[in-house]
Design a protein around this nucleic acid. Structure first.
Lengths: 244, 244
DNA sequence: GGCGACGTTCCATATAGTAGAACAGCCACA
DNA sequence: TGTGGCTGTTCTACTATATGGAACGTCGCC
């Protein structure tokens, strides 16, 4: 099943995750592969432009992966549909507005519009977090048809074990479903208030979420209450733009 | 030389460049490869998470490439060093500020801060353009030690043939070198005024450029003149932050 | 000066990818 | 309602291609 390709991709992933250039030996031990093998694979990755070889014989990922990735993101339906309405929402609040998509057990941070007073602590675009631990993830989970089963599966999958029980999660999801939006909790990052609404596709299945987050002191409960309607209408507009 | 890996990467590039999902046959003919081969390769790309198979048997690139690419970009030295000073520059002007890096014969658009009145026509982050055709590319070319040779090579490489002669380019570069910055031209995109300064690494070699661009009507010659000093100091600051 | 760890090169072996043919499903046109 | 031509997919014998151990040259450190 194309083990060579698979190995090359794994190698590329390792390099993209490494904060510093890596040598052949380190990569070889990490992949449990002979040095000569890794060396040749690195050679082809270099000749394809995905990896750069530094003068001291170490290797690092080039920007080619990023360039390809940006082409993909540029065409992303969710982002294209959401970006205008996010701008509008950004105009109403002064906090950080984030676009999130579900991806496996996690939610993936697609786009972020930083507040004028930027929120340094928050997760940035391109990162991911367990769905159970974020309001964005929760608001999406709440609106799946099989919400309860899915919640249990995701809850069991997350490690380390969350600081709350499964029952708490399930009742939270129920509340979210009733309200139509999710709020605060600050389970994921302490000191931060946040709220999120769900974006649904044509078939009513959650395909994304818009979240607003700010520091507890500035982004008070009152301000959040004022934002409920703008947030919900933004989400509704995006859902409609997607054909829902 | 790991032809399988090379082929898989080419396939991935094709998919990232395609605006719509593609079928096996189309990919096979484009790569001049047997269908069965492409089919198996697509299978491993899917199992690795880089490609998604749609229900109608067509394939499209997933966001995994983008996710990896964002990890690389997050660590990018140039971007990390420049972003704060770009923000400062953005505060002075109301136009679009762009960070550019040289990459082969092209310049690659690393980061873009949109103006309050956004400039829709300009090239976006993740895209690339021939160095000869942009002020950002020109300001970097002008400050290489072998500027003249490099200019000739890049001039000959670009197609279609530029609407200006090599002599014009060389004299332009000379002017740029004397001024310390590049201005306007609007060779690449008509109706747009633009200016750029160069960012140099520790060894004095150009490693990037900062460009400011706006519509001819709003971003007048006078406004550009006022921006020369802020732009140059921003570039100098970034160069210094890089150890230059 | 020599030990150890590094990146790199080489080459016989067999494994893993190749390519063609055959299959099954779909759609369009007659 | 066929039928022809297009999909994507499966299968298999073949051989070209990746494999991995051993040997090489080089650097830095004790």
């Amino acid at each position: 099943m194309d083990s060579t390709l698979l190995k090359g991709l794994t190698l590329l992933e390792l390099l993209t995750q490494s904060p510093v250039p890596v040598g052949v030996s380190a990569l070889a031990t990490k992949l449990a592969l002979p040095k000569s093998n890794v060396h040749r694979t690195l050679g082809t990755l270099v000749s394809a432009g995905y990896v750069r070889r530094l003068e001291n014989g170490t290797y690092e990922a080039s920007l080619k992966v990023w360039e390809l990735g940006m082409q993909v993101m540029k065409r992303n339906q969710l982002r294209r549909a959401a970006i205008a309405f996010m701008h509008a929402l950004q105009g109403v609040t002064t906090e950080t507005v984030t676009l999130v998509a579900p991806d496996g057990d996690d939610c993936l941070y697609i786009h972020q519009m930083e507040a004028s007073a930027p929120l340094r602590i928050s997760t940035a675009a391109g990162e991911r977090a367990p769905a159970v631990m974020t309001i964005s993830g929760r608001v999406m989970m709440a609106f799946y048809a099989d919400a309860a089963q899915r919640a249990q599966r995701l809850y069991d999958a997350v490690s380390p074990r969350p600081p709350f029980g499964l029952e708490t999660l399930l009742s939270d999801l129920k509340t979210i479903r009733q309200n139509g939006y999710a709020m605060s909790g600050s389970h994921w990052r302490p000191g931060i208030n946040s709220m999120a609404g769900v974006i649904c596709g044509p078939d009513g299945v959650p395909v994304g979420a818009i979240a607003v987050a700010g520091s507890k002191e500035r982004f008070t409960d009152e301000k959040m209450q004022e934002l409920v309607q703008p947030l919900l209408s933004a989400c509704a507009n995006v859902s409609r733009a997607l054909g829902g």
